[in-house]
Design a binder for these strands. Structure first.
Lengths: 181, 181
DNA sequence: ACATACATGTAAATAGTTACATGATTTC
DNA sequence: GAAATCATGTAACTATTTACATGTATGT
């Protein structure tokens, strides 16, 4: 799903500025989608030109005027059509797993460090998601589900890492020793 | 990690042609990295020009000659340096979760279909990974771990989907009814 | 003093996919 | 007769990030 349609989706939940849309990507969306200002602002400009969103300007003091966007009827039609036709395809890109794939090329300390770092990242992510769950009274059922989904995946991985850590490190050490001989 | 360095990594495991590297991305790598011919062939050309890999040509009958690539010493140095400095950052992009995020905008049948499709995808992925684990006697410890990691994550999500399916569907139905009134 | 939040936007650069071009052989 | 496997490569296109440009207010 591209940034254009994601913006339309967000605007179905209520009007928002580009800046506010970015904040949503950083909180509720962050574990499964990303978008920067450099893609959001051009997307909103394109959507406006195409008549899929409209905006009013709220004057700000000592700041650029705030553009508050609303979705239009044609915009609503497009996102509904998009949601009806999008396949549920996932893609995962992990530099951690690339590192693990080539673990035999890493120094033991480096491997341990990478492992610890990933565990730390997972814990932080889980904590962030749990916080959103607890605080967010305004979350829809669908949103709650996406967060539970993230927590479940991260927890499973975290547990695997704990149980497999020792065996992995020693297995790799064995392989490295074997290669040296 | 970009395709250039991933190719170097693969070539650390042994010599290979572009076509064979692609096959690795489709099997052992597929759950956490992707690369198409359109990126692999130019990457190998660039690496050759930079002296990070070399190749010999194996003549084929009625086919383009096979170029079998090997990593060179400078290439090995570069990938070692890259592996030593790469942060274990992960990114996950899920159209399924986008769909769930906006589940209240989906028709109930569509929602059920998307849900079933995702469950099916997960089952297939788990089966593929388990097959690789069982067959692959030549897997390194690190590779085995990446596969176990994929299985653990997918299984956790699959289980969550089973346990939450009914409640989610009814929660969303409630929200939709609520909106209509 | 420095970072962060607020608020918009552009331009260059990056990185990749998709589709095309070629073509024999084998499997369904 | 169609699709998959083997085998290489290019070119156009897509989407996105990063860095820049501008500037105040507030918190650390």
């Amino acid at each position: 799903m591209d940034v254009n349609n994601l913006c339309l989706g967000v605007l179905c939940l209520g009007e928002a500025s580009g800046y506010e849309i970015k904040k949503m990507f950083e909180s509720a969306f962050s574990h499964f989608q990303a978008a920067s200002f450099g893609s959001i602002y051009p997307a909103l400009a394109k959507l406006t030109e195409a008549g899929l969103v409209s905006f009013r300007e709220e004057p700000q003091e000592k700041r650029p005027n705030k553009k508050v966007f609303q979705i239009t009827e044609p915009g609503r039609r497009q996102i509904m059509q998009k949601l009806a036709s999008t396949e549920p395809a996932d893609q995962y890109r992990s530099d951690f797993l690339v590192l693990m794939m080539f673990a035999h090329l890493l120094a033991p300390e480096r491997l341990a460090e990478v492992f610890a770092q990933q565990a730390e990242n997972l814990k932080t992510e889980i904590a962030t998601l749990e916080k959103i769950l607890q605080e967010g009274c305004h979350l829809t059922a669908g949103m709650r589900f996406t967060i539970e989904y993230g927590i479940a995946a991260n927890q499973a991985i975290y547990r695997l890492m704990q149980t497999r850590k020792q065996t992995l490190l020693s297995e790799i050490k064995q392989e490295q020793d074997h290669r040296e001989n």
